[in-house]
Design a protein around this nucleic acid. Structure first.
Lengths: 198, 198
DNA sequence: AGCTCCATGTAAGTCGTTACATGATTCA
DNA sequence: TGAATCATGTAACGACTTACATGGAGCT
């Protein structure tokens, strides 16, 4: 593929699982090329071909590295979700704000869940562009496994969103319990600085 | 707190929810100071006090910004978990490797779950240093809410790990189904490069 | 005297984002 | 001829990591 094509996929389905801007994709491709993991072929563009494009393909070394990387254990993800940091300090706001906060959390993950569900549907129907390209290059008897792994990954992401939704719902119940008999718009803590250490 | 103290907490309980090295903490504190969100007091160290340390405290502007930030909706986290990228391409390895891969995933999250569970326990018993400091600075009637929010956040992280564990288990079942009647150590796909685009 | 802990930084580099910049091709 | 799309980059900056660097304090 060309960098441009890759960038297009990163704007669509690939973004569900990893994100990258075109600026990063182009520089990264050049880096992979310098490392010998991909090779580029300069192709003419259009009829009169005053312009060109660069189509990349894996080298044998690149394919080997891909196999190695995939089967190697995944390093623990960084765990940097501001949502959980904020949730830890919701007492800085009013009950009303906490309620709004959990509702926003729920909405966000509901939308994400719906996107993933549509995508799993597409994968099961083998209806996505990328999957078709992938299957076209692999021997027939492997097709079921290829689809099954991808479906399993996205179903996992769906479960994640459901966990977030359930957590937000329990958060709303918690706020209801805490706010019983209180003025909803009163901050739990006044916005003053804590005492400096002495 | 001093940067050193902060760094110590970041090596312990805070690391469960956010990570930072001392090098980042010191530079960030200087930045917050320049922005007027914190103030530093230079304190003597030890008896003869040839050395000093810098203890930081929130300014009113810093407290205000903290309140604002916490109650503002959390931006969607980047979604960059290599595990799910790898899971999408497990056909590049053998069934045996896939099985090992899911087992490693499960082990990782089991260990994490146990850590979180111990921490929730500590929080409920109000036995952690940071929580005690926190409660000491807040009026009594707010204590329950402060603890409840933190416990809720960590319980959410526990649910997350359980989702990952269940996903890994279903992954193992999937590999069992796929590998029926196959040689376990055969790669699903040979480690060759796909055909370059034509 | 030597070890561990306390305490604070800087430098170089990676990964990623946002914004800036350019030009050809295609189609209405 | 003008707009959308194809196509590829660079520059500046922000967040974070790893490694380098220094020195006092407290204890045995």
């Amino acid at each position: 593929m060309t960098g441009y094509e890759l960038a297009k996929y990163f704007d669509r389905s690939v973004a569900f699982i990893w994100q990258a801007r075109h600026s990063q994709i182009y520089t990264e491709l050049r880096r992979l090329e310098a490392e010998g993991l991909v090779v580029a072929e300069t192709l003419p563009r259009g009829e009169k071909a005053l312009a060109t494009k660069r189509a990349y393909a894996l080298t044998p070394a690149g394919a080997e590295e891909l196999h190695r990387w995939v089967t190697e254990a995944a390093p623990p993800p960084p765990l940097r979700d501001t949502a959980y940091v904020k949730a830890t300090y919701l007492e800085y706001g009013s009950y009303q704000q906490a309620r709004r906060w959990f509702r926003a959390h729920r909405s966000h993950y509901e939308a994400l869940r719906d996107q993933y569900e549509r995508h799993v549907d597409d994968l099961e129907r083998r209806a996505t562009d990328l999957l078709r390209r992938r299957l076209a290059q692999a021997p027939d008897p492997t097709h079921d496994a290829i689809v099954a792994y991808k479906v399993h990954a996205y179903r996992g992401l769906i479960e994640r969103t459901k966990t977030e939704i359930a957590w937000a719902d329990r958060g709303l119940e918690l706020v209801n319990r805490l706010s019983e008999g209180h003025d909803l718009s009163d901050p739990v803590l006044p916005p003053s600085a804590p005492h400096p250490p002495t």
